[in-house]
């Protein structure tokens, strides 16, 4: 090994110094400090790459997988039914268990008036707002024209919102491409998600949702569902009507 090769190999893999390199650096102060410098530099790179990861990522992955999987299985089960009515007798245990749990969920929903099943779209909306919490701090107004340029892609148009828009981004809302808006209301910034409902609707559950900080409401529409998230205590019903009334579908 020569000096050049020693350097190249050390730079390429500073944290995986093999025996050969070690021996070459042995009893040579300069080479040893070169290894140590490169290790320090690598630590520096590593720290720079070590960006924060969203806190509940693992949970969201598991939830997302189980929801999508369930949807897929339900779709397949419905497909089987249409093709061959007899096939329902051939359900394997998974389908059967799924059907059973579906029945339980439906019964729980219809027969227990006190039980309040929160719609998971509401949960998702809250998670989404927290994840992009800095969107609520934006102050720069965005013209209605540029909001409408984006909304036009989803097939909609807004006449006016009850406050100036400060954030308008396309987003992924449970796998659907939606529009994420924030506008300034008299009760602080409010978030609106406009999500096309052609492919899927938001399933069962209470259309109102809340936590300590925010409350929101899911408004279902034939072309799109609109979800409003406001600070807790804001007159959400009034804003609901104004927002949903302002959107026209082409």
């Amino acid at each position: 090994m020569d000096e050049l090769e020693f350097r190249r190999r050390t730079i390429a893999q500073p944290n995986d110094i093999d025996k050969e390199l070690m021996e070459f650096a042995n009893n040579n102060q300069e080479r040893q400090s070169f290894i140590s410098d490169m290790k320090d530099f690598d630590k520096y790179i590593q720290d720079a790459l070590d960006i924060p990861v969203p806190e509940n990522l693992a949970d969201r992955i598991l939830l997302n997988t189980s929801l999508k999987e369930k949807a897929l299985q339900e779709e397949q089960a419905t497909g089987d039914n249409v093709v061959d009515a007899c096939s329902r007798f051939k359900f394997d245990r998974v389908h059967l268990a799924l059907a059973a749990s579906f029945v339980v969920a439906i019964s729980a929903f219809f027969f227990s008036a006190e039980q309040n099943i929160v719609n998971e779209a509401g949960e998702h909306a809250l998670t989404h707002v927290y994840y992009e919490i800095s969107s609520l701090d934006k102050k720069e107004p965005i013209s209605l024209q540029s909001v409408n340029d984006k909304l036009a892609i989803l097939g909609g148009h807004i006449d006016e919102l009850p406050g100036k828009v400060t954030y308008a981004m396309f987003c992924d809302f449970e796998g659907e491409k939606g529009l994420h808006l924030v506008f300034e209301s008299d009760f602080g910034p409010m978030t609106v998600f406009i999500v096309p409902s052609e492919n899927k609707s938001f399933g069962f559950g209470d259309d109102s949702f809340r936590d300590d900080r925010f409350e929101g409401h899911i408004n279902r529409g034939p072309q799109a569902d609109t979800i409003l998230v406001a600070n807790a205590g804001a007159p959400i019903n009034m804003y609901n009507e104004r927002v949903t009334g302002a959107i026209r579908w082409l």
């Binding site: 190249r8 730079i11 893999q13």
Partner: peptide, 11 residues
């Protein structure tokens, strides 16, 4: 290995 070397060198 060459690319790893060049990446760090460029940095």
């Amino acid at each position: 290995m060459t690319r790893l070397y060049r990446a760090r060198n460029q940095l």
